[in-house]
């Protein structure tokens, strides 16, 4: 070991820096959250012994359980909407001629580079009671009275879909790009109809993309607390809002940490499913 440090001081310095940063700012904080979730709430030092599972039990308190389930429901709706919009979109995008494709992808990632708060606020301009959508519908005579669009569950879902759609489309686009036309032709030649080809060939081959997209959408859809803050009012909270309130306002670390562990475990399960689907594809392809 000492020998290698003397021989390659640069290598040793690089590895030390990289490891140091990740251990200190990634591993240690995550272990801390894990630890905090099984400790007891303490007003002075935030957390203290003894160890217990009270925080996890508190998650099943009907009051919070309702918020969690509602958040999960909104996140699921968001993910489904992104999938329904994104799947045909990615398919169509992968069939556009190459030159134009680059421009279209560029247009897709512009929103990713622009401030998400500002874009959420822009939706507010459209959805407000006397906003653009209501004015447009009224002047067209579709409705007589402005609809209550803002501060509803629907507004939160629209906001989340608007922010997260590109994260569903990009992984889907990349699997559609890899989908070889000859495979589809082969399926057709073997006598499969359009629907059978879709069900037996296209869906299994694009499944890793679907799961990657779901992973990239579902979890942020439970965490982006500023979306309900701006569009949803106080009745449409996300898990993210609960974590934020518990950590920053109520100073209840164990509970906030336990909620965050639940999110992390969900993420781990989704990642596992993603790997599994990729591995299965690899085996079948080989």
């Amino acid at each position: 070991m000492m020998q290698s440090i003397k021989q390659q001081p640069f290598r040793a310095a690089v590895l030390l820096l990289v490891w140091g940063w990740l251990l200190f700012l990634v591993l240690a904080p995550n272990l801390l959250v894990l630890g905090a979730s099984v400790m007891t709430r303490n007003p002075g030092t935030f957390i203290s012994l003894p160890l217990n599972l009270d925080a996890y039990r508190q998650l099943f308190n009907p009051l919070y359980l309702e918020v969690f389930l509602h958040s999960l429901y909104m996140a699921t709706m968001t993910t489904l909407a992104c999938l329904l919009i994104g799947y045909p979109f990615a398919w169509a995008l992968s069939r556009v001629e190459k030159r134009r494709q680059m421009l279209l992808i560029f247009l897709l990632i512009v929103p990713f580079w622009t401030n998400s708060l500002v874009r959420t606020y822009a939706l507010k301009l459209i959805l407000a009671t006397n906003g653009l959508l209501n004015s447009a519908l009224m002047s067209l005579g579709v409705i007589d009275e402005p609809l209550q669009l803002l501060y509803t569950e629907g507004a939160v879902i629209v906001g989340l879909v608007y922010l997260l759609l590109p994260f569903m489309i990009l992984p889907l686009y990349s699997v559609f790009e890899d989908l070889r036309q000859d495979v589809l032709l082969a399926s057709h030649d073997l006598g499969a109809g359009r629907f059978a080809t879709f069900k037996n060939v296209i869906v299994p081959l694009t499944l890793p993309g679907v799961l990657a997209g779901v992973m990239l959408v579902l979890l942020p859809a439970m965490g982006l607390f500023f979306v309900p803050d701006i569009l949803g009012g106080s009745r449409n909270l996300l898990v993210g809002n609960v974590i934020k309130n518990q950590f920053l306002d109520a100073r209840n670390w164990p509970f906030g940490a336990a909620a965050s562990i639940v999110l992390t475990v969900t993420m781990a399960l989704l990642m596992f499913a993603h790997r599994l689907s990729k591995r299965r594809l690899g085996e079948e392809g080989a």
């Binding site: 700012l25 990634v26 240690a28 904080p29 995550n30 801390l32 959250v33 905090a36 935030f46 992973m215 990239l216 979890l219 942020p220 439970m222 965490g223 982006l224 607390f225 993210g240 974590i243 934020k244 950590f247 670390w253 906030g256 940490a257 965050s260 999110l263 992390t264 993420m267 990642m271």
Partner: peptide, 16 residues
């Protein structure tokens, strides 16, 4: 770090 929800990263760092 890349995949975990931002809020998880946020509270872990705040704790630290």
């Amino acid at each position: 770090v890349m995949m975990s929800p931002e809020i998880v990263l946020a509270i872990s760092l705040l704790g630290l």
